[in-house]
Design a binder for these strands. Structure first.
Lengths: 343, 343
DNA sequence: GACCTTCGTGGGAACGTTACCACGCGTTAG
DNA sequence: CTAACGCGTGGTAACGTTCCCACGAAGGTC
């Protein structure tokens, strides 16, 4: 048997004032006698009063809650995003409702409904379904995260700066003496793939390499996808040192395993560059050199954009967060040796 | 300019009934004409009505939300727990508020306050502060997770079955021909350490090994903690093959690095057994053999226990979830060779 | 001294829902 | 024929908060 929670009326009675006055004191309003305020505050403390956010939300239309819908909280990148969002929300004294969609449009839809019913003040979503009308039907302020969000011109979104990241990686490759990496890219229908590939091609053109010569293998964004892609790459005829740029760390690690399976060594025979910055990359042998996406910053920034959206000053633009290189040991340094090209 | 959300009154008006009737129809009550119910349901769909959980919570005292306070959502084990809790909660049409305490009692306290203000129906907490009176002051139904919860006899808690897990690991070690592993344990003040060590000692006694002979090195539950502990272990005089049982996967991976640093090989010279089942363990070379904690199941079960607690049928007992062995490649098979003992 | 303003406070409505009670109607039992 | 009952429905209070308006007292201006 749990006893009733004290309300503002209990506080008011104990302080000998009306509930209006108690409310004012608790809200920190100015038109109130210092002595009264202190009496109310003391009473609140004495009875253990805690403001009921449900009632506040009901009256004010602001629930003090935000929603976050990501593919999978178990994925280290998304956990990082969630963490960033969480911290920023907590700073603003706002709670975060977290949902995993498992890349399933039906789940996404159902979580969005739950968010609306909970009357969250806004939502941050990594959209899995492509339909824009679905987004409009959100019926609440929102900001999108991830590269698939680029599709929608007129909504706020936050993501990593893929162009900057790929350029960073490519330049690092060049500095190590690798000039035309083989590419392991993600599935065809994903927008992230296009952006990734486009940047690589632009880089080629800038360096007078024919983009048509680019070797690209596709794969799922998984360990196995990377492994299979690497195997196919190794089946192609080639001479000398091989350099591979994988669009995702899990694929890069899969590729590393494929290299080992074939009796080759990384980085002596094959150099591998990843993209994501997952923690596991630190524990492979050799450690995976990769470009880290700023997951946490993305989460933080998304919450800030969402606040803008809620306050009614929408920027409706895309924010690109810069990535950084994590230089470990999966890249051979060919810059001092005679240049060899994979083909 | 966002237009007003439709309320139950809008539905009632459109269906030509009173809001009481509309409410009954929406709630699926039985004392209502089928024809009326359908009319209301159709009206609700037409205006795009969505029940306001804030108002429901206010009236019924049930917010339909649960809180989860874990050390860090970024940690793969806790992400797994969160995922399990999330899925089970979603099944019951309940939302989950997730907070990371960073092992900081002050943050924990503040998150608990936020939970109370949000009027969650209950909370799942991995307690960082040791004070039981803090727990009593939760003022809401709760269940504890993790081994530190064992301290409190009279509350519901869910955790992994450390005794079963350690026994499982030790038996596996024996089957591979390792009889007295060196131990890398966690920090002294943690209860998980005691339970871990106690089980190892009981195992020794059962097999007529003097527990006093047990070699134990302490370390933080981190990569570096494991590395340092392993280095100290390797500094001790020893002959033949070394077998190490680490209380945590990150420590085990750290230990693996230390082995490599010293020019030794795993598993040829040193066998390593971990405990946790983090994904990174799959990508080390060799792959880490470990005992996996059922993080997701723990989350699921915790929510179920919490439901019991909320419904007022508290079991007030500890639930131990079984762990399972993941057999990879970090253990040498000595069972066919002449037995060698480390020490 | 009558009027207006300012300040601190109290009273009440409203947010959207559910729970409870009451009402009218038709049916059935006495 | 009337009382009792069941059913479907409507009206209203209540949940805890905030917002708006009104009130009385004190102070100032003409």
């Amino acid at each position: 048997m749990r006893k009733r929670r004290p309300t503002i009326i209990d506080v008011a009675e104990r302080a000998g004032v009306s509930k209006s006055t108690a409310a004012r004191a608790l809200a920190g309003a100015e038109s109130i006698l210092d002595e009264t305020r202190e009496r109310v505050l003391a009473a609140a403390k004495a009875v253990g009063y805690e403001r009921n956010h449900l009632a506040v939300g009901m009256r004010s239309g602001r629930s003090g809650m935000l929603g976050l819908v990501i593919p999978d909280i178990t994925n280290p990148f998304w956990a990082d995003v969630a963490r960033g969002a969480q911290d920023r929300a907590a700073e603003a004294d706002v709670s975060l409702l977290v949902f995993s969609s498992d890349w399933d449009p039906a789940k996404e839809e159902s979580h969005l409904r739950a968010l609306r019913r909970a009357r969250v003040d806004g939502a941050i979503v990594n959209p899995v379904s492509d339909a824009l009308d679905d987004l409009d039907r959100f019926g609440l302020p929102f900001v999108l995260i991830g590269s698939s969000a680029e599709r929608f011109a007129d909504v706020s979104s936050v993501g990593s700066d893929i162009a900057q990241a790929v350029t960073l990686g490519l330049n690092h490759l060049v500095s190590k003496g690798h000039h035309a990496p083989l590419i392991i890219a993600g599935p065809k229908f994903r927008l992230a793939r296009t952006r990734f590939l486009n940047t690589v091609q632009r880089h080629c053109i800038e360096r007078d390499v024919d983009p048509a010569q680019l070797v690209v293998e596709d794969g799922e964004y998984t360990f196995e996808g990377g492994r299979q892609a690497m195997l196919r790459l190794l089946d192609r005829p080639h001479v000398g040192h091989i350099c591979v740029f994988a669009a995702n760390d899990m694929m890069a690690i899969g590729a590393m395993m494929a290299v080992r399976e074939r009796g080759l060594r990384c980085p002596e025979d094959v150099s591998i560059l990843g993209f994501d910055g997952i923690p596991s990359g630190a524990f492979t042998l050799p450690g995976l050199t990769t470009i880290a996406k700023p997951g946490r910053d993305i989460g933080t920034r998304a919450v800030e954009s969402l606040f803008d959206e809620i306050e009614g000053r929408p920027e409706h633009g895309r924010v690109y967060m810069p990535c950084r290189l994590i230089d470990r040991a999966s890249l051979a340094d060919l810059s001092r040796e005679p240049r060899k090209l994979a083909g």
